[in-house]
Simulated assay, not measured.
Amino acid sequence: MAITAAVCGMLAAGPVACGGTADPGGERASAELARLRGLLREEASELPDGFSARSRDGWVPPFKAADNDCQLLFDTAGGMPSQRGRGTWVAVTYPGDRVGELAGVSLASYTPEDARLRFTRLTQALNGCRIARTSLAGRSTSLRVSGLNLDAAGADVQARRLHGRLNGYPYEIHMVFALAGHTLVSLVHAGVAGVDAERTGQIARSLIGRAAL
């Protein structure tokens, strides 16, 4: 989007690192962008112990997946341009205090019909992505996908655990996608070796609860 660079620059020092809207001149879109930014400001104050509230730009996938379903999940979680469509979005990353730990959050607002269609497509991609492998030959990168249980996170919630090796090193990613009204919530909690599912659930429940209000 044409306004992305300007928005990201203005927000670099604050709790919302990057965001935009496909309709920058519309009052409704502007109000929705302000709502999403406000959600992240609130979330920054409620992060689990060990996470920094000083955010960075949205999550960048650690590799390009060979499988299209897996790549769709990566792109959506990172708020990639091709996945924003006609929506309004914000994306940030919060660093954690464990080795390589981070929490990437993307919130996107659509019409109710478009939001439901996108969540349905993500659910299909989650079922189709069994092993996330790099598209580059000769790299020791392969993450096996399995279920991830999050207690009381909500009805329209899908969560997966990706675990294996990234460039030969043990690595784990928790991915959570949720539909809260017309807001699509995406969360990535990643790190070297083990990632605490309890911390993943805490962030997810807080995000989903705020977005649903």
Score class of each variant (00 low, 15 high):
Y171R: 08
R161C: 10
G201L: 05
H174E: 07
V195F: 06
T200F: 08
E198N: 13
V176L: 06
V192S: 08
G164R: 06
I173H: 04
R199H: 15
Q202L: 13
V188A: 06
A178E: 11
H174F: 09
P170H: 04
A193Q: 12
G181I: 00
V195W: 01
Q202G: 09
G194K: 15
E172P: 07
M175N: 05
V188E: 02
L179S: 03
H189E: 10
A197M: 09
R160M: 09
Y169M: 15
L166G: 03
Y171N: 11
I173W: 07
A180E: 01
A178T: 06
G164A: 09
V195E: 02
A178G: 12
V192Y: 11
Y171F: 15
R161Q: 11
L162M: 14
L166P: 02
L166H: 04
A178W: 08
N167H: 08
V188R: 05
G168W: 11
R199T: 15
A178N: 09
L162Q: 12
A180Y: 02
N167I: 06
G164T: 06
I173K: 01
L179W: 04
A178Q: 09
H163E: 15
L184D: 02
L162T: 05
T183S: 13
Y171W: 15
V188S: 05
H163D: 14
A193G: 03
A190K: 03
L166I: 05
R161E: 10
G168H: 10
F177E: 01
A178S: 12
D196E: 14
L179V: 02
L166Q: 02
G201N: 08
L184M: 12
H182C: 04
E198R: 14
V192L: 10
Y169W: 13
G201H: 03
